[in-house]
Simulated scan of single mutants.
Amino acid sequence: MGTENLSHLGRAFAVLESLVEPKSSAEISRELDVNRSTALRLLRELEAIGYVRREPDNLMFALDANRIRKLYAGREIDPANWRDKFDTFLKTIRDEFGEAAILGVPANNSMVYASYLDSNNVVAVREQIGTVRSMHCSALGQAYLSTMDEPKLTELLKDISYLEGTTRAPQNEKELRERLVAIRERGYAIDNEETFEGGMCVAVPAKVEGKVIGSLGLSGPASRMVKKAEEAGARLMEFVSAH
C-alpha cells in the first residue's frame, strides 16, 4: 500500500488500519512503502498517545484494544472517515488563515498533537506531532473539557495541578469552570497567551459520528491571531456543525 501521497496524519491511520494483528516496524515499513525510521516514528507516536502498544514477549506493535474500545464505545467507526474528514480540513484551514492547524487528542489528562500542519508564514509558532499541552490552559484542552458531562468533568479535574501555563491561565478549578461556561456559550475556546507568552490558539471539539475524540485548533503568534480569532472560531464551528 503506497502512502507517498498521504500526509503524516494519513500515514498514521494507515498504520492503525494495518495493525489487524501484531507487526514489527519492518513489516509496517514494507506495507506502507516507507523507510523503517519513518514507520518506527509513526508507531512510537501512536504508542505515546495510547493507541498502539508493544507486546511484552516479542516487542511487536499492536493496537491497544482497551483504548480503541473506550474511544469507540462499541460503535463501528471507520478510521478512513477520520483521515478523509480531518486531514483535508486541516490543510484547508491552514491555507485559509496561514497559521498552524492541529488535531489534538486526550491522553493522561493532557492533549497530545495527533496531527500538526505547520504555518506557511516565516514567523510562526513552531511545534510538532507529539507535542503535549495541559488541558486547563490550552484551547485544545478547554474545548475538549467543555463537552464533558458533570460527573466525568468533576473526576478529571481532580487530577489537574494548574502548575503549567502562564499567569493568564486558569489558576484553580473555579476559574477553569468559568472558562468552560464561556466556551459553551461562545462555541469555541481561546488560549490567548495562556500556554506560553506570545502564542494564541482557537479550538473546537472534534467529533467522529457524534462522539468527541479530541479538538481541532488553529495556532499562531498572538499578534496575528488576535485579529483572526473570531473568524477562525466561526470557521472551525462551521466545519464541526457540518460534520
Rank of each mutant, 00 (worst) to 15 (best):
Val34Ile: 08
Arg235Phe: 11
Ala62Asn: 09
Tyr162Ser: 08
Val125Lys: 04
Ala242Asp: 08
Leu63Tyr: 08
Tyr113His: 13
Gly233Leu: 02
Glu155Thr: 10
Glu164Gly: 13
Ile28Met: 05
Gly165Cys: 03
Asp78Arg: 05
Ala48Leu: 05
Ala234Leu: 14
Leu6Ile: 05
Glu197Asp: 11
His136Thr: 07
Ser18Asn: 07
Ser161Ile: 14
Met60Phe: 11
Ala232His: 00
Lys174Gly: 10
Met135Lys: 02
Ala203Phe: 04
Met111His: 02
Leu59Met: 13
Glu230His: 07
Met111Lys: 01
Lys211Arg: 14
Tyr144Val: 10
Ala222Asp: 10
Pro205Glu: 01
Thr166Glu: 06
Gly130Asp: 03
Gly187Val: 00
Gly217Glu: 01
Asn109Tyr: 09
Asn121Tyr: 13
Asn108His: 13
Ser134Trp: 04
Ser219Glu: 14
Asn172His: 06
Phe13Glu: 00
Asn5Leu: 12
Ser215Gly: 02
Gly214Trp: 03
Ile129Arg: 11
Ile28Arg: 04
Arg177Asp: 04
Lys91Thr: 09
Glu231Asp: 10
Val52Glu: 01
Asp57Ile: 13
Pro22Arg: 02
Phe97Ile: 00
Val123Lys: 13
Asp118Leu: 15
Arg83Gly: 14
His136Lys: 10
Leu43Ala: 09
Leu218Ser: 02
Arg53Ala: 14
Asp159Thr: 15
Phe86Asp: 01
Ala114Val: 07
Ala124Trp: 02
Met1Leu: 13
Val181Ala: 09
Leu236Met: 04
Tyr162Ala: 08
Ala107Arg: 09
Val202Ile: 01
Met237His: 06
Met148Phe: 12
Pro221Cys: 11
Arg177Lys: 06
Arg53Gln: 15
Gly165Tyr: 01
Leu153Phe: 04
Tyr113Trp: 09
Leu176Tyr: 03
Ala169Val: 00
Ser138Arg: 01
Ala139Phe: 06
Met60Gln: 10
Phe89Gly: 02
Ile28Ser: 01
Val123Trp: 01
Met60Trp: 10
Ala26Ser: 12
His243Arg: 13
Pro22His: 04
Asn120Arg: 15
Leu32Ala: 04
Leu218Phe: 05
Ser7Arg: 01
Arg30Ala: 14
Ser18Trp: 01
Pro151Gln: 00
Lys85His: 13
Ala206Ser: 04
Ser37Thr: 13
Leu71Pro: 10
Ala48Tyr: 08
Glu4Ala: 11
Arg224Ser: 07
Asn66Leu: 15
Tyr116Asn: 05
Val240Lys: 06
Ser110Cys: 15
Glu193His: 03
Thr154Trp: 08
Leu43Thr: 10
Glu45Pro: 14
Ala169Pro: 01
Val52Ile: 07
Arg53Phe: 10
Ala101Ser: 07
Asn109Thr: 12
Ala203Ile: 01
Gly198Ile: 07
Leu90Asn: 02
Glu99Met: 06
Gln142His: 04
Glu164Met: 12
Glu238Ile: 11
Glu99Lys: 05
Ala101Arg: 04
Ala232Arg: 00
Leu163His: 14
Glu55Asp: 15
Asp149Met: 07
Glu99Leu: 06
Arg184Gln: 06
Arg83Met: 15
Leu40Val: 05
Phe97Gln: 03
Ala232Leu: 00
His8Met: 10
Leu63Cys: 06
Val123Ser: 13
